[in-house]
Design a protein around this nucleic acid. Structure first.
Length: 296
DNA sequence: CCGATTACCTGCACGC
DNA sequence: TGCGTGCAGGTAATCG
């Protein structure tokens, strides 16, 4: 579920109840997620005021009026939902139904949110427990964040930069796109989608994005543009909803309806004029979907 | 350093 | 209905 667009959708949904809120209490209902929660996790958060809710790659970054930042990762199955204070009209559940299964509610933040009477609860639910939370004084120097590559949002990622990142890389393009040290935030779905948009085979070596001597960065530019556009479109649509992902208003994201290749094995390629069928292969242990006819 | 594989954990879809 | 199998959007550790 959560690649960069889904994490950004979650961030936007949580922002109105979290920014400016006072942390009244935190419940850690188990001592560990993927990693042990930090020492005295709940106590260290209580009483602090949340200043901002940001995002870096697939990480949520919570900053406070004092003390270290809180870094949250949703893993594969993590979700947040908001339980509104009585008598207020807060956004509904972030993730529908399944995260209502209280069994996997691992961390509960009790907040005094701006403009809300009573307590607003922000609940982290994660059945597979691949998610994690940690503290960082300086995120740029934290080992988990320091090595992250360029954000695919904004205008930074262009052809020359991408070609430089992929120079000398013999790994297949798909694997290179998943490497968070190069480009940070792409996951298995959007890597396949971006390659389809660019008309490039996931099996091609990443270093072939470099232009021949004296030539333009046409190929790399096309891939960079495809990455930026697929991420932007997915954020715009409120993320995808392969399982039960939902946006800030509690309704599912709709980008799944726009998948061109992901989870479409055997179906017709959607590129106008292409008569190929979508194929599924396994690269680095993970599914890749592509059209062998129009992706070279 | 690079690239590939495995582990982590639960839930679900599928075939028998 | 139940059981075994494989697969799932994540990262990190390990091994050539």
């Amino acid at each position: 579920m959560p690649e960069l667009p889904e994490v950004e959708t979650v961030r936007r949904g949580l922002q109105p109840v979290m920014e400016g809120a006072r942390v009244l209490k935190v419940e850690a209902r188990r001592p560990d997620l993927r990693f042990p929660l930090p020492e005295n996790f709940a106590e260290r958060l209580s009483g602090r005021r949340i200043v901002s809710l940001g995002r870096r790659a697939k990480y949520l970054v919570v900053s406070f009026d004092c003390g270290p930042l809180l870094i949250c990762h949703l893993g594969m199955s993590g979700s947040f939902r908001i339980e509104a204070a009585e008598g207020t009209s807060r956004p509904g559940a972030f993730y529908i139904d399944r995260s209502r299964n209280l069994q996997h509610d691992h961390v509960v933040f009790h907040l005094a949110s701006p403009g809300a009477r009573g307590t607003t609860r922000v609940v982290f639910n994660d059945p597979r427990r691949f998610g994690f939370m940690l503290f960082a004084d300086d995120p740029d120097r934290h080992p988990m964040l320091a090595g992250l590559g360029v954000e695919p949002t904004g205008n930074e990622l262009g052809g020359p930069l991408l070609a430089g990142l992929f120079r000398g890389r013999k790994a297949p393009l798909k694997a290179a796109l998943l490497d968070q040290r190069l480009i940070a935030g792409l996951g298995n779905i959007y890597a396949s989608e971006a390659l389809w948009r660019a008309g490039l085979s996931p099996r091609r070596q990443a270093c072939t994005m470099a232009p021949a001597a004296g030539r333009s960065h046409q190929r790399a530019s096309r891939l960079a543009a495809a990455i930026r556009s697929v991420i932007a479109d997915a954020i715009e649509a409120g993320g995808s909803s392969l399982r039960d992902h939902a946006g800030a208003d509690g309704r599912p994201g709709y980008f799944q309806h726009s998948f061109s290749v992901y989870d479409r094995e055997g179906e017709a390629c959607r590129r106008p004029g292409c008569s190929g069928r979508i194929r599924r292969i396994v690269q680095a242990g993970r599914s890749t979907f592509y059209c062998p006819a129009c992706q070279r």
